[in-house]
Design a protein around this nucleic acid. Structure first.
Lengths: 167, 167
DNA sequence: CCCATATAGTTGCATAGCTAATCAATGGAG
DNA sequence: CTCCATTGATTAGCTATGCAACTATATGGG
């Protein structure tokens, strides 16, 4: 008689090994064809990859992209930043708050319109500019190599295209 | 002489209209070829689309997918759920907490191993099963129609494949 | 000139995700 | 048989995000 220890049976349950009784557990495949599921799961994985890439700067991906956007166009407004990063204005406000606190960005109200404020990188941020772009470029290059250049570019283009058809 | 009102100039800034001085503002295109950027942005948009789809059930996408997973395999363990949904175990714990509080799931500890607990749908959850699957199916069908069947399936498959090559 | 409306930004509140640390039960090594 | 490493689950603390409501400013019609 075959006796299963609890540990062994739990490995069967989690589909890590083939089940001795030839029973196939489908749960892990359940959402395999779901756009939402696979995109959000991939996004979480990429979050981890880019976190690693920006770790030398002690910046999260969100902070790093905010900074890169402002470095590319110093003086941009919050609403422009939100649009550039495709996030809500409220989120942009908070992202800038954090980088102002870190001494990497500063706000200046515009002369023309008292409601607006422009966002500028500090000198400390300017010093990071090339490093940040390079870090992102390196991880991109690495993944292009691992996934195949065409695959990569095609996928990114499709993601952009699908997004442009959604609300 | 051309005088710009502040409102008008802010629309130029945000790239909503063509700039009269032929200056092109590149910021919104800056991350167009970035895998991280486009995937996370798309994920946020899809979050909105699926939120809408599950709104009739008063469930968030995360709750709905948790429920669907358990409904597909009643009695699954938390670690299995985490693997199925591709989230951290801690997140699975909290997702189940919420649905237990809503009266849709219940935990039962297993006889064999006192550390484990199995997750079961309640009767209330069973009543939602088909509705949830249909709701997700409908939004999938709609997007397939809008985006093209092949595009859709190809993209999802690539997302899965890219994910499987990442840590 | 003044008020109604629109807009830029902010704040409050909520969700979902992560990592790291912890708790509790199991099971194997000696 | 006892002790320790392992494992399933949970908790603590943090980040990023969104929506909705709010504040302050600007604009334009009467």
């Amino acid at each position: 008689m075959i006796v299963l220890t609890t540990r062994f049976s739990s490995k069967i349950r989690s589909n890590k090994i083939n089940c001795i009784c030839n029973h196939i557990c489908y749960a892990p495949l359940m959402f395999d064809h779901c756009l939402y599921f696979n995109t959000t799961a991939l996004a979480r994985q990429l979050e981890r990859v880019w976190s690693e890439a920006f770790k030398p700067f002690d910046l999260t991906p969100s902070q790093a992209f905010t900074l890169r956007a402002v470095l590319a166009k110093p003086g941009m407004l919050h609403s422009e930043l939100a649009e550039t990063l495709r996030i809500a204005r409220a989120t942009a406000t908070r992202a800038v708050d954090g980088l102002v606190a870190r001494g990497l960005l500063e706000r200046r109200s515009t002369k023309q319109d008292g409601r607006e404020s422009e966002i500028y990188p500090t000198l400390a941020a300017l010093a990071l500019k090339d490093g940040l772009n390079d870090a992102s470029g390196r991880v991109t290059a690495r993944l292009k190599g691992e996934l195949g250049d065409g695959t990569f570019a095609g996928f990114v283009e499709q993601a952009r295209s699908i997004g442009s058809h959604l609300p």
